[in-house]
């Protein structure tokens, strides 16, 4: 009697396990299929001569979607254009010498360090190497930006008026 029940039990369980396996296989296949192929754009980008990187401003290298500038010690820094908040491209405001995000009003200093706004951290950076006097930006290698509470490593208060018209924002 108990043997008969076991067989019934076994069969009833096996079809459920079978259905489950097919389901898992289906999900797996779908995920694998939809997973994008390796992004060809990510990688090392030869940009400009190291001498061309300014210490008091930034230059944009659109091929790497990055800004190049120099930190307090004179080292070259590559800053990811994308706002760490929600991915908007952050333009550099020449008049104030700050990065000002148009989407939610986050503001960063020349090194992408946090000044104000809702962003969770400073602007992300890319790994930089200098080979034969050329700056190579490794866009496949992102370094999380400096934390929100970290002190700024350069002392450059806003040089002039902000680029946004409405300056009444506190």
């Amino acid at each position: 009697m108990s043997n008969e029940m076991d067989r019934r039990d076994f069969l009833s369980r096996s079809w459920k396990v079978g259905a489950g396996l097919i389901g898992v296989a289906g999900l797996w296949t779908t995920a694998d299929l939809l997973w994008p192929r390796v992004d060809a754009a990510a990688g090392e980008v030869r940009t400009v001569a190291a001498d061309a990187v300014p210490a008091d401003g930034v230059i944009e290298v659109s091929a790497a979607k990055a800004y190049l500038t120099r930190d307090a010690a004179g080292e070259i820094v590559a800053i990811n254009e994308k706002c760490p908040h929600l991915g908007c491209r952050v333009p550099f405001c020449e008049s104030s010498g700050e990065f000002e995000c148009p989407c939610h009003g986050s503001v960063f200093n020349r090194l992408g360090e946090f000044r104000e706004g809702p962003t969770p951290r400073g602007m992300d950076r890319f790994l930089v190497t200098v080979v034969d006097g050329m700056v190579i930006v490794d866009t496949g290698n992102t370094i999380s930006g400096p934390g929100k509470g970290d002190p700024e490593s350069i002392d450059e208060p806003p040089a002039g008026p902000s680029c946004s018209e409405g300056s009444g924002h506190a």
Binding site: A31, L34, W35, P36, D39, A41, A42, G87
Partner: peptide, 9 residues
Amino acid sequence: RTVLLGGGD
């Protein structure tokens, strides 16, 4: 996000 966008951006 990667699957939805089919890449990083």
